[in-house]
């Protein structure tokens, strides 16, 4: 009883897990999450150890992108290295009745790289909106936070800026695999 859509590939007959990825998709994720090999045909290079053609790798990546598993395939800059050394995780206690609408507005402001709603853990953690701000200085981050404060208005009861004092580990890795060796310390 196979649920695979590619019966020609025996390993893919494992049922997909909750994220809809089969064994070969996951192998491609593991092989590419630290970056593509910088060679003329990176898909072929990724596929070779997996027993897949470059074409098959590319088709699967197109499918994963269409399914939203891959957001984009891109050159990912290290903003810290570009001079954005002030990285502030701002956390906001926003009225639940308005947080979804306001979250969408906040996400459009310049300097915002991530904007997520997360659960509160009362009493010690009252914040339900997380907004990552990037600036070259703390003053710049504070100005951005000020703008957010104005936008949120009375719906916001409290907020904090948590600056990173040290980056202890940062990788783009999502799934464990043999490529799990590119953890950078800074």
């Amino acid at each position: 009883m196979s649920v695979s859509t590619c019966p020609s590939e025996p390993a893919a007959s494992n049922p997909p897990r909750q994220d809809g990825l089969d064994v070969l998709d996951r192998a491609i994720v593991v092989a590419t999450q630290a970056g593509l090999p910088l060679v003329p045909d990176p898909w072929r290079a990724v596929g070779e150890p997996l027993g897949l053609s470059g074409e098959a790798v590319r088709e699967r990546m197109v499918r994963m992108q269409a399914a939203g598993v891959i957001r984009r395939v891109a050159a990912v800059p290290n903003h810290y290295r570009l001079g954005y050394v002030a990285n502030g995780m701002t956390v906001w206690d926003v009225d639940d009745a308005h947080v979804d609408r306001l979250g969408r507005e906040v996400a459009r402001l310049p300097g915002v790289s991530h904007c997520y709603r997360r659960p509160r853990h009362l009493p010690e953690w009252p914040y339900n909106l997380f907004v990552m701000l990037h600036g070259r200085t703390r003053e710049e981050v504070e100005q951005q936070a000020e703008r957010l404060c104005e936008l949120l208005g009375a719906a916001c009861r409290d907020h904090r800026i948590l600056y990173s004092s040290r980056i202890l580990k940062k990788t783009g890795l999502r799934l464990a695999g043999r490529s799990d060796r590119r953890g950078q310390m800074r």
Binding site: D19, V29, G35, R71, V76, N78
Partner: peptide, 20 residues
Amino acid sequence: LAAAGVLSRVGPVFDHARAG
């Protein structure tokens, strides 16, 4: 650019919520 750390990588950016 990758060696200098200006690019952290060239490759897919996964949706955290959907890949694993």
